[in-house]
Design a protein around this nucleic acid. Structure first.
Length: 426
RNA sequence: GGAGAGGUGGCUGAGUGGUCGAAAGCGCUCCCCUGCUAAGGGAGUAAGGGUCUUAAAGCCCUUCGAGGGUUCGAAUCCCUCCCUCUCCGCCA
């Protein structure tokens, strides 16, 4: 959520910022609503004061043993007027809130302008795409030949966009997750957390998935309403919802492995083959909570931590900065890390690292106490994949495939694979 | 699943339908006194929002788990929901 004060005071500036995202903001409509809000709120609060004063006088009169009936009669009619005003204010405030909740974050000045993902800018590359010496198979064929990846049986059990892994491939997937968690905890100093995989509406509103993107989520309908998490960013960032952090504890850095569930509504026909885009996938997520002045330094650090996983795995990648059109709803700036996929002969997203500044923090009132002012102030929140495990798995399979259809296991994963060096057909 | 007890400020914990945003204690901040492995005294110390302002201060509204209701007036009474704890049952 953007700061309502910013909209009130500098609406034209905000509209110009939103235009960078290709959004046309109806300034006149907003100004009219806001004028109405102000008028109603001032009048309603005046009435409330009047009522409070009268009630207090009634109490005092009663204490003195006076007849309070005439006083009561005088205030009686006020109730209805007040109630009507409150209802009107609530309605107007609701309309304004709908606007506030629907507006994306303001982009950082360094975000390049653009109209589509084609305008994203490459920042750096690491590693050289390996020359296999033969035509690269994709992970679907590799997995099928190994007899350890079965998408058909997954479709039978659940439907499309699910996978069943077996044997060494299943273990490699698990090894990747363990490797990532251990690296972030032991070498990058993260605090590991375990969190619920189903969350309530408030949490999803806090991180920005709701109310606007409900169709992307899987809802669980029982006595209580739950949603399956689309990313660990939701439960982990919401750890701070409604809390005030001690300044000396910042920055907070959490790492968390969870499954992620996404409906992928609107991506019909996109990445239908294989494990690139699944309804259910595993991810190791990094979340930073920090002081506002350090959040862009934290974004570089977080992105670096995600990159280091790919380096250790020996997987070629590049880092891009998303352009104005491609930057997500809650983010002020996002780096995507893309890993080389030999079968597609191009880089594919494997991590997305964002600084949301105070956008999520304002929605969820996630704050820290600034020792200089003594007051609670909004935190900045960041999140990034470190990394998506399913995509990391297929990147390893494809980049480490051998002419005989076996897959070499990257050195750093071997301790997690019982010392095995290679995955061969069953 | 059954029975019961609770949810109050950073923490502990009082609270009678009427100056209660709320006693007291702890913690924290500042000041004073004193002087050495301490102690004593005083003051201050919740959050959100609005209004005015360059800003601050001030003034006002709201908030005692959440949402409704009764009332001139609700932390206090009523309803619904959520959560925590204890006992029983079941269970990974």
């Amino acid at each position: 959520m953007l700061d309502p004060k910013l909209l009130r005071n500098e609406i034209d500036k905000v509209a110009a910022e939103l235009a960078r995202r290709g959004l046309k903001f109806d300034v006149d409509n907003y100004n009219a609503l806001e004028a109405r809000r102000k008028d109603l709120q001032v009048r309603t609060e005046d009435l409330q004061k009047e009522r409070n004063d009268s009630s207090r006088r009634i109490g005092q009169a009663k204490a003195r043993g006076e007849d309070i009936e005439p006083l009561k009669a005088a205030v009686a009619m006020m109730g209805d007027v007040l109630k009507a005003g409150q209802a009107e204010l609530l309605e107007t405030q609701g309309a304004l809130d709908a606007i506030y909740m629907g507006l994306p974050n303001i982009l950082h000045e360094s975000v390049p302008p653009g109209l589509s993902e084609d305008d994203n800018l490459e920042i750096r590359r690491w590693g050289e795409p390996v020359n296999l010496g033969f035509e690269a198979a994709d992970h679907v064929d590799l997995g099928a030949a190994l007899g350890q990846l079965d998408l058909e049986v997954a479709a039978k059990i659940a439907g499309s966009r699910f996978a069943v892994m077996k044997g060494q491939v299943a273990r490699l997937h698990r090894a990747l997750i363990q490797f990532m968690l251990n690296t972030h905890v032991e070498e990058h100093g993260y605090t590991e957390v375990y969190v619920p995989y189903m969350v309530n509406r408030d949490s999803l509103t806090g991180t920005g998935q709701l109310p606007k993107f409900e169709e992307d989520l899987f809802a669980v309908h029982g006595e209580q309403e739950y949603f399956l998490i689309p990313t660990a960013e939701v439960p982990v960032t919401n750890l701070a919802r409604g809390e005030i952090q001690d300044a000396e504890l910042l920055p907070l850095r959490f790492v968390c492995h969870t499954p992620c569930f996404r409906s992928e509504a609107g991506s019909y026909g996109k990445d239908t083959r294989g494990m690139i885009r699944q309804h259910q996938f595993e991810k190791v997520e990094l979340v930073h909570l920090c002081r506002p002045e350090e959040s862009y330094a934290e974004l570089e650090i977080l992105t670096g931590h995600a990159e280091s996983i790919l380096r250790r795995l020996g997987l070629p990648y590049r880092v891009i900065v998303l352009c104005s059109a491609d930057t997500g709803f809650g983010a002020a700036k996002t780096y995507d890390i893309e890993v080389w996929m030999p079968s597609q002969k191009r880089y594919r997203e494997i991590s997305s690292c964002s600084n949301c500044e105070d956008f999520q923090a304002r929605r969820m009132q996630a704050r820290w106490r600034n020792p200089e002012t003594g007051k609670p102030e909004l935190l900045h929140t960041l999140n990034g994949s470190g990394l998506a495990a399913g995509r990391a798995l297929i990147a390893v399979m494809e980049n480490y495939q051998q002419a005989d259809g076996s897959i070499l296991i990257p050195e750093v994963l071997r301790p997690y694979m019982g010392g095995a060096e290679r995955i061969s057909p069953n």
